[in-house]
Design a protein around this nucleic acid. Structure first.
Lengths: 348, 348
DNA sequence: CTGTTAGCGCGTTCAC
DNA sequence: GTGAACGCGCTAACAG
């Protein structure tokens, strides 16, 4: 299947991809291969004259550097694995998008990895991803297998942990303070005069960041002297449907509830749409708050109050941090709080 | 930055990643490196005794094969670039998800690439992705730069084109018949008794698949003897907001419209939500149909009629086709129609 | 500024 | 069933 043409060039001893190599370009331009290499990688270290001859030869032969060979000889394959818990959660997609756009401009490619919120899978995935000799790694969260953290710390190449903020990171960290964000929405609900407030989430035994927001929520209530500590949870992944079910369950179990604090906008939107369907008035009969700032929230009626997190920007910043290290610059700070913003809209 | 420890092992001449190599394992097990290689890649060609010794050494040293070296020596880096027009369109994300899940199980990794619907960018992106010596390539659509198609045809490794269906593909093809899908929804609208039906889409000068659906739509109307050929378009990317604006524009320009056929569910949902907001009754005052089958559509009121496309499954099938080639099996058919399904719900 | 030499770590080839 | 030698294509190191 590989190479059906039995190799026209006589130079090839065996195998070989039969493509144009740096040697071909060197011959064409009448220089040594290393000069071609330099002309391509550090043009300023080659005289203008040779550079031009080489550029012409490259164009003429259609030379494309073999990054694998380059990666073996030097270091780094100009790839960055991005390891996230799930590819079916929009948040991660948007972060990945930001990362991809930024890295691609700089000539790096993104390698995708997903762990399904499983730290064992994360550990083995990262282990095998390192076999690709990537230039750096971006991964989700600050909690990992101990051997993963150790391995990456000793790895000697840039590592960025995203989505979460903390004092102890492997190398660099861009994220948001989940605890504070949870407290922020809870405080908003309290400010609105609600007391019987529940938190509702999915997959919280695996997604500990949602749990951190719940902790913030709970603490805000406690601090305000509101003795109400209600959590509704389901173990399936987040979806509109899960939000709808959570909503129904909450209404049924505790008809006295005044406000619902959802772990994310998908759930909140599912609830809001169900409320619309049933003719339940939001926020008069029950208030609904979310987290993330999905654009959908702005189009529902009433518009969804939420805490927006600049997800795309988080990706961009993570990538920039990565690039600054890769290009030898020391990043200003290895830790960046990307922030969040409370958006008060109609649903609360 | 790279390797701060000045290399403890004396073996290293210069550079080198200071990690465990096949040679280390070989020494530990008291065999030649090639035997380790065989024990790992073709276990049946090594005696049980040695195999066990080697496995132990691998475990003891925590050896992880350097895929870069392997990729250079043999061929294929066990990576598959997936090139899509955009990472901000949910459809592509879901397809990528299916691809990623399937390939990762088989030990292949996904490299992400996006072209922003630009065939020039696609051409140069693919050119540079080939530098990674990937095992295969998955790309979007059947239309490419001629040099891209030629390059990939001569490349000698599996190529799958997705999202679209056609007779002439580079190698293998999994997708959906856009023309037929557009006609299908149009026919449904006609069957409902609507005649003044408009098609509404975004970015259609770049996203020719949406245009193919429009052609199908237009033809269905013509065939039915309905002389109505109205297209509303905007050039921004699809979004709820774009759908809302398109909806408003259509209502304003042509108050006599009976049904709106949107190029995708994002647009349709934006329109439907705006209708709700304005108290416009759907479908009594105006019917709305979409395309894709996003789960959001099922939660709106009324529920959105649409044409569902099994996006995740399309990814899975594309990956399976790829794998069958990579593993030397001939795929049953190099062309797979993934199909679509008309979902008639409340909005029409 | 340019060239020479010597690997990067692995798998193929061919011999035993 | 196992091993020795060599090369995949490129670049770091060290001259000149």
């Amino acid at each position: 299947m590989l190479k059906q043409t039995p190799t026209t060039r006589s130079r090839r001893r065996h195998r070989g991809t039969d493509s144009v190599t740096i040697q071909d370009v060197a011959s064409e331009a009448g220089v040594a291969p290393i000069t071609v290499s330099r002309a391509l990688n550090t043009p300023e270290s080659v005289s203008a004259k040779l550079r031009e001859r080489i550029d012409q030869a490259v164009a003429k032969l259609g030379y494309v550097p073999n990054l694998v060979a380059g990666g073996l000889a030097s270091a780094g394959m100009r790839m960055i694995p991005v390891v996230v818990p799930s590819l079916s959660i929009l948040t991660f997609i948007e972060v990945i998008h930001g990362i991809q756009q930024t890295l691609e401009q700089a000539g790096y490619q993104v390698l995708l990895g997903s762990t399904d919120f499983d730290l064992d899978r994360e550990a083995s995935l990262i282990e095998s991803l390192l076999g690709y000799s990537p230039s750096g790694v971006i991964l989700t969260g600050l909690r990992h297998h101990e051997r993963t953290s150790l391995r990456l710390k000793n790895w000697g190449r840039p590592v960025v942990e995203i989505m979460e903020l903390g004092d102890e990171c492997i190398d660099m960290n861009v994220g948001v303070d989940n605890h504070a964000a949870g407290a922020c929405m809870a405080q908003h609900l309290l400010d609105r005069g609600f007391k019987r407030i529940a938190y509702l989430g999915t997959g919280m035994s695996r997604d500990y960041r949602a749990m951190q927001r719940f902790e913030g929520h709970r603490e805000a209530l406690k601090t305000a002297g509101v003795e109400f500590d209600l959590l509704f949870r389901r173990e399936e992944p987040s979806s509109y449907e899960a939000g709808r079910l959570l909503f129904l369950e909450a209404l049924k179990t505790r008809p006295d509830l005044e406000a619902l604090h959802f772990a994310n906008d998908n759930l909140a939107a599912g609830a809001l749409m169900e409320a619309n369907r049933q003719g339940i008035c939001v926020p008069e009969e029950i208030a609904i708050g979310g987290y993330l700032g999905l654009s959908l929230g702005e189009h529902l009626s009433p518009r969804l109050s939420t805490i927006t997190v600049p997800r795309y920007e988080m990706g961009v910043e993570a990538a920039k941090l990565m690039l600054s290290r890769l290009e030898g610059r020391q990043p200003l700070a290895p830790r960046l709080d990307i922030g969040y913003e409370l958006k008060v809209r109609g649903s609360t």
